[in-house]
Design a protein around this nucleic acid. Structure first.
Lengths: 130, 130
DNA sequence: TCTTGACCTTCCAGCGGCTGGAAGCCCTAT
DNA sequence: ATAGGGCTTCCAGCCGCTGGAAGGTCAAGA
């Protein structure tokens, strides 16, 4: 399988797949003409990584998850720990974003949004004291 | 005022402030010894930017907001539009993160997390069909 | 006066995770 | 023979800093 087909099957840009090879996530074989020759195992790995990335795991976490996936002796606790840490970070990020959202909503709601210059958004950003 | 004091007052690392000068967000004067000499206006701008950044605005948005802030003829509609677009993007990000969170919660909950290798998290990432 | 140590300066490189673009080879169809 | 698409490598850039090296400056204390 050439990179184009792999890309469309995995739902990843070809560039990204080349990058994943660069950083050693996958190691596809090569045809005589120099083209990457992807086997099913490569395809599976890429699908795995694509899903893990879609869940927000970092590349390094993906690397570890891949390794655990390939290790039939793994302890599920190791996998769970990674996922659980990641979940915590996501929850924290959501909290941060919700705080921003709430502030922004208030500011946007308080601004007339017409052709006059008075703007509570700017005033709030510029405020001397809190 | 030297950069150290400005940094602690604005709650920004000195490195960041130098970077902001680099990209033209601020233009502090210089003392004879080459040290940056921050005036009150610089300080105000930095505080403004720090607050805008804390609300998640990009550097480019901060640049625009700064310019609007300094423009007494601005229309509040222009400010509101930027804030409103940003709010929308944040809301979208929250939705994305919540989807990840929900999936991750389900996966984490379904994994025994002991020393056995069976792991629904890995199985889910590896699943052939959806 | 000398020294220490905290502060300041510039410059260069690297983080994560791609992404764009140039230059050139390969393959298939007409 | 040629046109087109797909493939290759390599280099540079995105964002917003951040770390570190190498060196100048300043105030306080011995």
């Amino acid at each position: 399988m050439n990179i184009g087909e792999v890309a469309s099957r995995a739902g990843l840009p070809a560039k990204t797949i080349r990058y994943y090879e660069d950083i050693g996530l996958i190691r596809p074989a090569r045809d005589a003409n120099g083209y990457r020759a992807f086997r099913d195992t490569d395809m599976h790995k890429l699908t795995f990584v694509a899903r893990a990335r879609a869940l927000g795991f970092s590349i390094d976490e993906c690397r570890t998850l891949l390794a655990l996936w390939e290790d039939r002796e793994r302890a599920s606790a190791d996998v769970r720990a990674i996922a659980s840490d990641h979940l915590t970070r996501i929850e924290e990020k959501i909290v941060d974003l919700e705080a921003m959202r709430d502030t922004l909503r208030t500011l946007v709601a308080s601004c007339a949004g017409d052709d006059r210059p008075d703007c509570p958004i700017l005033s709030s950003l510029a405020e001397q004291e809190r």
